[in-house]
Design a binder for these strands. Sequence first.
DNA 1: AAAATTAATGCGACAATGTTGCAATAGTAC
DNA 2: GTACTATTGCAACATTGTCGCATTAATTTT
Lengths: 125, 125
Amino acid sequence: MKRRNTPSKEKVLSILKSQNYAMCHDTIAEQTDDINRATIYRILNQFCEDGVAHRITSESGKQFFALCKSCNAGEHHHNHLHFQCNSCEKVECFKSEINISLPEGYQIENFNGLISGFCNSCAPN
Amino acid sequence: MKRRNTPSKEKVLSILKSQNYAMCHDTIAEQTDDINRATIYRILNQFCEDGVAHRITSESGKQFFALCKSCNAGEHHHNHLHFQCNSCEKVECFKSEINISLPEGYQIENFNGLISGFCNSCAPN
DNA sequence: AAAATTAATGCGACAATGTTGCAATAGTAC
DNA sequence: GTACTATTGCAACATTGTCGCATTAATTTT
Ligand SMILES: [Mn+2]
Ligand SMILES: [Mn+2]
Ligand SMILES: [Zn+2]
Ligand SMILES: [Zn+2]
C-alpha cells in the first residue's frame, strides 16, 4: 500500500518535529485545525510502521509518540529509555541505549522502557 | 487506613502466588468465584501500595501484576525488566536488575521496562 | 457476646483511550 | 482529465480501569 502525502500528515509531522518531547494524541490534536481524532491516530500508527516515529506507552497506558532519529520501515533502534514526569507529564527520550540480553530462544520485537518520577523542573529539591 | 483481611484478598493473593507469570485482571477474574471487577482492581491496587505486588504496563496499556520478592510499603525494588510474548501474551519478570542513571536533578519514582517479542515456546525457530 | 466503627464489597455509571466499518473525498499516476 | 485507491470524517464500538454510594462484614471496643 503506497503512502500518499496529505496536509494532515504534514501537519502532524511538523508538530512532532516542533517539540523536543514525545507527544500524546490530545496534545497533538490541540495544535491542529480540527483533524479528526481517528485520522490522527491512523497517521501516528503509520508513522510508527514507517519508522518515522516510535510509540512510548506511559504507565497509565496512554500512548506517546516521538520522532525516530535513525529508524526506517525495515530497521528500528529503540533500545533507549524514556522518562515521564509525574508532575508536568512530559515524556522525553533519553539518549543512552541500554543493553538487552534475552534468555536462550527468546526473540525481541520491541522495547518499551519508561522511568517515571520528577523532571529537573518539577523535582522538589 | 488499616487493612482488613478478607476472603477476596486471600483468593487474589493465592492466585498470584500460584503462577510464575504476571497476571492481568481478567485472567485473575477467571479463576475466582465471581468477585466483582471493581473489587479485584481495588485489591490489586492495594497490593501495589503495600509492596505485595507490582504493576507492569504492557505495550497495549493493559496492566499486569506480579508478586514482589523483596518489597514492602516503604521500599521498592523494581528495576528489573519484563518480557511479554506477542503470541501467548504471557508476561514474566526477568531477574537481572538494570542500572538506571538519571540526569542531574531528576528523581525516579518508578520504572516500567517491557521487552516484547516471542518467548522460548512461541518463537518461530 | 453485643455494639460500634469503618474498611471492603457490589453495583452501576462513568471516563479515558484507541479502533473499525463505511461512505465520501482527494492524492497520484497515466 | 480519468481512473485508481489511499485517506479522511463520522459514528459507533471495544477495552480497560475508576468512582460514588449504599450495603456488608472484619475488627475493635465495651
Ligand atoms: Mn524515544
Ligand atoms: Mn516484575
Ligand atoms: Zn516535570
Ligand atoms: Zn509465548
